[in-house]
Structure formats: structure tokens, C-alpha cells
Simulated scan of single mutants.
Amino acid sequence: MNRLFPMLCTCVLLAACGNDEKKPEPIRPVLSTLVEPQVQAQLGRFAGSIQARFESTLGFRVSGRIARRWLDVGARVNPGDTLATLDPTDQQNQLRAAEGDLARVQAQWINAQANARRQQQLYDRGVGAQAQLDIALTDLKTTGASLEQARSAVSQARDQLDYSTLRSDHAAVVTAWRAEAGQTVSAGQEVVTLARPDIKEAVIDLPIQLAEQLNKDLTFTVASQLDPSINTTATLRELEPQADATTRTRRARLTLAHTPDAFHLGTAISVTLTSMVSPRSELPRTALLERDGKTQVWVVDPQQKTVTARDVTLIERTDNSIVLASGVQPGERVVTAGVNSLKPGQQVTFDEEAP
């Protein structure tokens, strides 16, 4: 009896050890994501605005004091509409003086005509001297030249009076006023800026490093900041050759593929730059498993619901994501959390509807 008891204890212990060895690994719930192919790389997102491709800044062609500003910023104008007027007193005085000179010269020209006709008649009857006739004809020509000069002076004075009214020469929208009523301006000084609303473009400022790397493969996606569903594509039309001294950026102007109705002048937009790249995949940073000098991810077998460690080639690593060149295929499911707690062949549970 004493010898039988130790033998029974030994058998119980051996049976317990055998049960421990056969105990299966627990099924672990994991977070996962599906691998999606990526053929475009995002180079950045920049804020900008919708502006008119054609803008013109107008000013008076004469000096004077602005008497009235007829329109406000945002107003639409048609060709010939009045934008602003100067105090016309000086121009009106110049016109009256020119008209007075013209009336005086016209009277002189009439007298010169009569004198030349009279001298010609006397000379034809043989009672007039040739010298007197020559003087009369010369005076007629001189007076005729003075008459043309006086008429030109009147025409110029009328133009100067007309120039005291600033008008639009095309359909446009008033975008800025650079002078106010009561302000004295010189000829040619900038007064108002007009933009043609028929052709619009996107305008953004790009960092110098990115601006120098722009190529034909770049795609610009332009979207409204208030409603990103309103968007279109664009191509680079113009890149300013010099950078802004303060911001160290270069202004880029983009031609829109089509212009949505919601893209009004001044609309705030968001422009995303993308470029064609070799096929790659982007995953969360938490999916990466690094051990024994290898970079791996856990790939889920959706049928067996087990995981397998697979070597991957890493292209880029950020604080939140990794970019893989190879190792995984589109449509495969990769574990994104708890990668250090898994073992090859371990069974897992996951939400198949999770993106």
C-alpha cells in the first residue's frame, strides 16, 4: 500500500503535465484593416482662392480731386458704366478758354478771307499791288493754321473734361478701390481694380522646395473649403519665377478643368497635389512588427482565421503610417493593433466589416 500511493501520485502529475502541453492558444480579438493599392502619392494640401484670370487696374488720365465714387466693391459693371468722377471745374474752365480762343481765331480767319478776296479783285483789275496780295494770302494761310490749332485745342479740352469721368471698358466686377472720394489723385494713379468674371482660376502659394519639383505628372484637385464635394481638377498655368521675400513661397495659378457654379470670385479653396507613383500600400504605423532585424506584418487568413507573419519592404515611415513597396497584396487583411502579442498560426477574431 505504501508503495502504491507514490506511483498513483506520479501518474496524476504526468497526466496533468500532458494536459498543459495540449492546451490550445487562446483566440485573440484583433483590430485589422484591408490593404488597398495606392498609385498616387499626395504631396501636400494648400489653401487658396478663386480669382479672375484677367484683372485691370484703372486710373484717371487727368489729375484732380475725386468728387464721387459711384460703385462699391462687388458691384458688376457693363462696358461704359461710370465708376468715379473728378471735380470737373478745372477741365470746364480749360474748355471755355479754348472755345474763346477758337471764336477769336475764327473771326480773324473770316477777316483774312475777306482781305485776301479784296486784294485779289484789286489785283485782277490792275489797281492792286502784287505785294499787297501776297501779304493778304500769307495772312490767310497763317490764320487758317491758327484756326486748326484752336480747333485741336478745343477737342483736347473736351477730351480732358471727358477724362474726368472714369468708365469701365468691359464687363467686370469691382474687386478693390484704391482711392476715396475727396482724395486728390494724379494722372495714371491706381484708383479701382476690375476683374473679368467669365474666366476664373485657382491661386495658391507653394513652398520653394515643392515649387521647384513640379512636373507634368502632377494632378491638382481643387475643392471648396465649405463643401469638399464641390471640386474639380486643374493644371498648372503659371508659376511666378521669384519667391515672396517674406513667406518664401511662389505663387501658382491653375487652370480649372471646369468651373462649378459655387466657385465665385474669392471663394476659399483647398488644393491637393498628387503625383503618379509605383504601386504601394499605406498602413497604420501600429501594423509594423520589427524583430530580428526584419520588418513584418501579421496577415490574417480569412478562412482559417489565423495570422501569419510576412516580411515587407518599407518605403516610408511617419508618426502615424507606413508605406510598403511589397509583401502584401490588395484585398488582404492586416492586423493593426497588438502585433507583439501574436504568434504564428494563432487564431484571431476580427470584424470583417471593418475598413
Rank of each mutant, 00 (worst) to 15 (best):
V192D: 01
V192I: 14
V192E: 01
V192H: 02
V192Q: 03
V192L: 04
V192M: 03
T193S: 10
T193Q: 11
L194P: 11
L194K: 03
A195C: 03
A195I: 02
A195N: 06
A195R: 05
R196M: 06
R196F: 01
R196K: 07
R196Q: 13
R196E: 11
R196S: 11
P197N: 02
P197V: 00
P197Y: 03
P197F: 01
D198E: 14
D198N: 07
D198L: 02
I199Y: 04
I199S: 10
I199G: 02
I199D: 10
K200E: 00
K200F: 08
K200Q: 11
K200R: 15
K200V: 07
E201P: 09
E201I: 00
E201W: 12
A202H: 05
A202T: 10
A202F: 01
A202V: 08
A202N: 08
A202E: 13
A202K: 04
V203N: 05
V203G: 08
V203H: 09
V203D: 00
V203C: 09
V203L: 15
V203E: 02
I204Q: 03
I204G: 01
I204A: 06
I204S: 02
D205G: 07
D205P: 06
D205H: 07
D205K: 02
D205Q: 10
P207Q: 06
P207E: 05
P207F: 00
P207R: 01
P207D: 08
I208G: 05
I208C: 07
I208M: 13
I208T: 12
Q209I: 15
Q209D: 15
Q209E: 14
L210G: 03
L210Q: 06
L210A: 06
L210I: 14
A211Y: 00
A211G: 09
A211T: 01
A211R: 00
E212F: 05
E212V: 07
L214Y: 06
L214W: 06
N215V: 10
N215G: 12
N215I: 08
N215W: 11
K216A: 14
K216Y: 09
K216V: 14
K216L: 14
D217W: 05
D217K: 10
D217S: 13
L218Y: 15
T219C: 08
T219W: 11
F220N: 10
F220T: 02
F220Y: 14
F220M: 08
T221M: 13
T221F: 04
T221A: 12
T221Y: 06
T221C: 08
V222M: 11
V222G: 08
V222W: 10
A223M: 10
A223Y: 09
A223K: 15
A223C: 05
S224D: 13
S224G: 13
S224C: 13
S224N: 08
Q225N: 06
Q225F: 10
Q225E: 11
Q225V: 03
L226Q: 14
L226R: 11
D227K: 06
D227A: 12
P228F: 01
P228L: 02
P228V: 00
P228Q: 02
P228E: 03
S229E: 09
S229H: 12
